[in-house]
Design a protein around this nucleic acid. Structure first.
Lengths: 226, 226
DNA sequence: GAAGTTGTTTGATGCGGGTCAATTCATGAC
DNA sequence: GTCATGAATTGACCCGCATCAAACAACTTC
């Protein structure tokens, strides 16, 4: 892990965050002022469950995996964060302890914003609070989706869903590149890597072509009703 | 379904809500003014997934189950709300559509608060926004817990966990009454009723005595390490 | 290039829990 | 009390997926 200064493209990412754009310029500067940046190797741990955390993390590049540990040492992913996403907003308004472990899933750069300052801003500026409310509601919806998927769908169905969520509406056939390793996708979907692999091979019969990280869809209909 | 007036004990429940107590008295009155109350039989549907909803629901008595439907008609619970809990806060700050179906799981009374008014209050008063932020973060944590449990624990472990969560710290043996039917508990834990039943019978060997809705714990240690 | 490392696929096996069906148990209605 | 309805349990069966092990593929590193 290495500590850096904010580059101008980092600043661009931060400034484009929903809640950031609501801030008066002076507040923006105040936040950026206190921000630190660090780089991490794949598998680096950013924080551990129950650690006290006083920052909100923003992924500037790479990928961060949030997971809990079972008593037997097994890991279960609860979220995966990509560029531009915020980690630790929950903790900021609760007991300021991490509810899970965070680990870089690939070489990553993250910014740390002082959560004390953010809390204060939210308490002073309803626009900031509003933006955070919307963010949290969005998180809430995602979590609900995830839980429902886990409970209702089989492995191939979850994968089909994931693929469709990347399909622009209206297009009948298309292709895209997985934004991360299949490894990580498996965790995100609550599957063992082997199960993901088998799910892909099941979906081949429905017109899904997988070549490395490239996914190609030939028959959207077939996927939808899987 | 029948529409009622607010009783004084209903008012007491509402006024004790975390975010409510932050409001100036005039705002409290404004909210209560616009509130409606309705009673529901068990199995009544309060709203359906994708319905536009313009209210936040507060459970005054009884129990409300929130669930999603699978393509095959199977139901998966995403949350269960008891007296004093708020339903539909997410929707209020998103697209104002229900993300799931809501159903009374037993005879229930719910209040409906105008979400437009609430949103406005949150936009004007940072104290209200703050309270909602805390509420949502709490919801977020619960959802994360739930997801992690689903992915890490077996049925008996989930049940053991549930029981322990009702155990006052420090007490080695104790007993309590399930706050709802086993039916509902099963759904909440993501289990079929049969699986819950079997889990209970597995836990008997660890000193859990089940008689109707009464649960008795004889050996806390055994439960914790299950 | 060769050789090690890490990610992915495939096969064989076992466990957990969903589903269906049949009882047993509770709870009320009359 | 009897009967009826719904809840909870128990057994039998099966399917989905985790797990273990091994073969492969794709990148590094030298």
């Amino acid at each position: 892990m290495k500590t850096l200064r904010l580059t101008s493209s980092d600043r661009a990412i931060l400034i484009n965050l929903r809640f950031f754009s609501r801030l008066p310029r002076t507040a923006q500067e105040a936040i950026l002022e206190g921000a630190t940046v660090s780089t991490h190797e794949a598998h680096d741990t950013l924080f551990r469950q129950d650690d006290p955390i006083d920052d909100v993390l923003v992924v500037l590049s790479g990928l961060v995996r949030l997971y809990r540990l079972g008593k037997d040492g097994r890991e279960a992913d609860v979220a995966v964060f990509q560029k531009g996403e915020l980690i630790g907003v929950n903790a900021m308004f609760l007991d300021r302890r991490a509810t899970a472990n965070a680990q870089a899933a690939e070489p990553s750069i993250v910014a740390r914003l002082e959560s004390g300052k953010l809390r204060q801003l939210a308490a002073e500026d309803t626009g900031v609070a509003q933006a955070l409310l919307e963010l949290l509601c969005h998180h809430g919806k995602m979590a609900e989706d995830c839980l429902a998927e886990d409970r209702l769908l089989t492995a191939p169905q979850r994968v089909a869903n994931y693929i469709l969520s990347h399909c622009p509406i209206g297009s009948e056939s298309f292709s895209f590149r997985l934004p991360f390793q299949k490894n990580v996708l498996a965790g995100k979907l609550g599957l063992a890597p082997e199960a993901l692999s088998r799910a892909f091979s099941t979906l081949r019969r429905s017109g899904v072509v997988v070549k490395g990280r490239m996914i190609e869809i030939r028959d959207r209909q077939a996927l939808e009703q899987f």
